[in-house]
Amino acid sequence: MNETPEPGRRDRELSRRTVLMAGGATAVAVGLGGALAVDASADDDTAADICYTLTSETVEGPYYIDADKIRQDVTEDQDGIPLTLTLKVIDAETCKPLKDAAVDIWHCNAVGVYSGYEASGSGGGGGGGPAPTGTPTGTPTGTPTGTPTGAPPSGGPGGGGGGHQEPTDDSRYLRGTWRTDKRGYVTFRTVFPGWYQGRCVHIHVKVHVDGAWTDAGYEGGRTCHTGQLFFAEKAVLLTEDVEPYSANTTTRTTLDEDTIYPGNGHAGGLLYLTYDRRHIARGVRARLTLGVAPDETHDGS
């Protein structure tokens, strides 16, 4: 025998399902007294307009190394807040996931140093060395002659743009490549990045397509996306009191001050983040959908 729902029961059930579909994270946040910081729109897979939004291209920066480190866990021996980064790569025109794409990530450690470039210290394009000491002596004489030639130096103090720099050492921490699954997903385990002179906190990313996966790694193909992933200020501020980030004495550039972040939110690489704002040291989960044009080449040069 079918029971007749009591008045209001069906409405309550529908309301409950609606809440659950909106995301269980909301209920968790309430249970923790609001300590869990969650972006309620983090389920970007269901956003209809995300399929048709190309993720902004940015410069590659000077510290890319095509090292073929095929791995999901890029942490090595680096200290820092655990970060799980999940990316979904889709064709921005068709909305279909790109499977078997190669995704590279690389970023600095908690005190702003990139592997392979430890001689640069924390300061981007060579800006990490000690400041000159002493008082200059003598007075320049004569009049400059001739006309300057060539392009101006690139990169700036923060190493955010400009041409590639050759590595100074063999370290390769916080770098890696992994392939997307049939749904376009790829996940990395790393640490929350620190900061260095002239740049906000960020992670570099590249997406390669039409290559071949071999025992040696990923070969051939082309780079269809070069971008950067960014972190909201409220999360970065919490890291400043956590070791070893608290040992980073470099003046931090905020998201709004950064000259590379395009300022267009998630389409520009701003990550969705989940973390306990009372205990961010326990770990952060970050995710984003990357809408790319697989038939184009964007190598960030």
Rank of each mutant, 00 (worst) to 15 (best):
A286H: 04
D299Q: 01
P97T: 05
Y64R: 14
P136Y: 01
W106K: 05
R12C: 03
R17E: 09
Y275I: 05
V38A: 12
L83K: 07
N109G: 10
K96M: 09
G129M: 14
T226P: 07
T214V: 09
Y185F: 13
S301C: 05
Q78D: 03
G300L: 03
A35Y: 07
V111M: 08
D170R: 15
T58M: 10
P294D: 00
M21G: 02
G159S: 01
P82I: 06
D79W: 03
P153Q: 04
E118P: 10
T58K: 13
L290C: 09
V74P: 07
T147N: 02
E257G: 15
H204M: 03
G156S: 00
R277I: 04
V59Y: 08
A281F: 13
D43M: 09
Q228C: 12
P294Y: 03
D44K: 11
D241I: 10
G33P: 10
R17A: 08
G263D: 02
L255Q: 08
Y52F: 13
A37Q: 07
E60W: 12
A22T: 10
A247Q: 14
R17Q: 14
G156T: 04
L36P: 06
T55R: 11
D43W: 10
S41T: 08
Y64I: 05
A42C: 07
R71W: 02
P294S: 00
G162R: 11
T223R: 00
K182R: 12
I203A: 00
T141G: 06
S246Y: 08
T133W: 05
P153R: 07
A232W: 07
P157S: 07
K206C: 01
T86V: 15
M21S: 03
G138Y: 15
L288W: 10
G159P: 11
G176D: 01
E57V: 12
T137N: 04
P5W: 11
E166M: 04
T214A: 06
H298T: 06
T253R: 14
Y52N: 14
G112S: 04
R17Y: 14
